[in-house]
């Protein structure tokens, strides 16, 4: 039996509504509740659902940006607690807003270098940066440029390169296809497929449309109103949807066009 890379038990997380005077939370509002699932190494899992359903919050919780209220996240069998400072996290998240995730004051080379190991010489660091740029099929001349000079698709790739430079074991992409033009979506899908096979990555994709993740995902989970209502291999979900929402999402994907 393959040991799962990531296993989540009964995860509940949310945000305080009205923070109290002394800092104690009051009126805490859960955004995700009771989510449990497991992912095996090398798998690609997609979480799909309507807006506001909690998908992004799940991604944030897994990546360590949102402290869960209850539940356990196990990574390689060990509980995932507050991440050690000073070291890149093993679970890297690529935010939906790629431009916002890049420091406008650092050029692309510096941005990617932030993720590289700290004890490298300048030469070694530069080599690493070039290596990761190449991996995401961006030209080396972008090293000197600043985020404002890049297109949306390029910024997204820089974020991916940066995340890869952190040598993660699990990569989460939050709505990577949503804001993009069709051709960029397709190119990104292509890139992810390529990375999956060459880098042996485990991926989690967050999306609101089943169509965009169909070709990449091994398993699909449907998240709505904070709950995980279905979690099946892709083919099974597409051919035998169990819930009404899944059926609605399948219809919206217009697969029979």
């Amino acid at each position: 039996m393959v040991e799962s890379l990531l296993s989540v038990e009964n995860l509940t997380a949310g945000y305080p509504c009205t923070p109290g005077l002394i800092g104690k939370r009051q009126n805490y509002r859960p955004v995700i509740s009771g989510i449990s699932f497991a992912i095996n190494p090398g798998e690609t899992v997609a979480f799909v659902g309507p807006s506001g359903g909690g998908k992004t919050s799940l991604a944030m919780a897994l990546a360590g940006f949102l402290k869960p209220e209850s539940g356990i996240i196990r990574f390689r069998g060990e509980k995932l607690d507050d991440q050690a400072r000073g070291a890149p996290r093993k679970i890297q998240l690529i935010f939906q807003d790629a431009g916002g995730a890049l420091n406008p004051h650092l050029n692309i080379g510096a941005a990617i270098a932030e993720a590289c190991a700290k004890n490298l010489s300048k030469r070694e660091c530069l080599d690493q940066v070039m290596h990761f740029l190449q991996m995401v099929e961006l030209s080396a001349e972008l090293i000197e440029r600043y985020p404002a000079q890049l297109s949306g698709g390029q910024k997204q790739r820089v974020c991916i390169a940066r995340a890869l430079a952190a040598k993660p074991e699990l990569l989460i992409l939050d709505e990577p296809f949503s804001a993009q033009d069709l051709l960029i979506q397709v190119q990104l899908t292509d890139l992810l497929r390529h990375l999956k096979s060459t880098q042996k990555l485990t991926l989690i994709l967050i999306a609101h449309d089943l169509l965009t993740v169909r070709s990449l995902a091994d398993r699909v989970g449907i998240i709505a109103r904070g709950h995980l209502i279905e979690y099946e291999p892709t083919a099974v979900l597409f051919s035998q949807p169990r819930t009404a929402l899944t059926r609605a999402l399948l219809e919206a994907a217009e697969l029979d066009v």
């Binding site: 659902g49 309507p50 807006s51 609101h208 449309d209 089943l210 169509l211 609605a248 999402l249 219809e251 919206a252 994907a253 217009e254």
Partner: peptide, 8 residues
């Protein structure tokens, strides 16, 4: 800015 169902 809409999800698949809202778009439809």
């Amino acid at each position: 800015a809409l999800d698949a169902i809202a778009r439809r």
